[in-house]
Computed example of a mutant assay.
Amino acid sequence: MRRSDRKRRDPDLGVLSSRLLFAVQEELFDTLAQQGHDQLRPQHGAVLAYLDPEGSRAVELALRSGQHKQVVGKLIDELEALGYLERRPDPADRRAKLVVPTTRGLDQMSRSDAILARIDERYAEALGADRYANFKQTLAEVTERQRAWRTGLPPEPA
């Protein structure tokens, strides 16, 4: 039996999670493009998905997303050039910079939240609210345990 046949019949956690990620990203970014945010790419989610509306430090975005600081820095540069965010002095520490969403960035964040809420609603309806809530809770726990295993830190509560 070829390995690809086995993966189709009994996909492992990596295959399943990547299929889910890519399908959700495709719907999210296609819908955002239809709503006027056509310059965004899925890679930008490593910043936008973790950005606080009041701003975040780049190092926090790297930690939250699990990306290297250099990758996050490049994405911040791109998003700043596209008008989605700006760097400002951090009022808590003038030596540090905050990455703050612009009006365009806040619009994208709001639209993304609405699109992802519709996806959640669709699956809650298709699978049943309790079953879908259990799935999300289990997926969150598996994800946190995997991240904890990779970092050596104890898992955070789901």
Results as ranks from 00 to 15, higher is better:
L13R: 15
A23I: 03
P42G: 09
E27V: 15
Q25S: 11
E26G: 14
S56V: 06
D12Q: 03
S17C: 12
D10F: 10
G14S: 11
R9W: 06
R2E: 07
R57F: 09
V24D: 00
A33I: 01
Q43K: 15
G55P: 06
S56G: 04
P42H: 06
S17N: 07
R8N: 07
T31F: 00
R3E: 08
L32S: 00
Q25M: 11
S17I: 13
V15A: 13
K7D: 09
L28V: 12
D10A: 11
S4R: 08
A49Y: 11
L21H: 13
L13T: 15
H44P: 01
A49L: 13
Y50L: 07
G45D: 01
D38M: 02
E27P: 00
Y50P: 00
V47W: 04
G14Q: 10
D30L: 06
R41A: 15
P11E: 00
R2W: 05
V47Q: 00
L32C: 00
T31L: 02
M1G: 13
P11S: 04
V24E: 02
R8E: 06
V24K: 03
V24A: 10
Q25E: 14
L20W: 07
R6I: 14
S4F: 06
L40H: 03
A49C: 10
E27K: 13
Q43G: 11
D10H: 12
Q43D: 12
G14E: 08
A33T: 01
Q34A: 15
E54S: 15
R57P: 03
E27G: 08
R41Q: 15
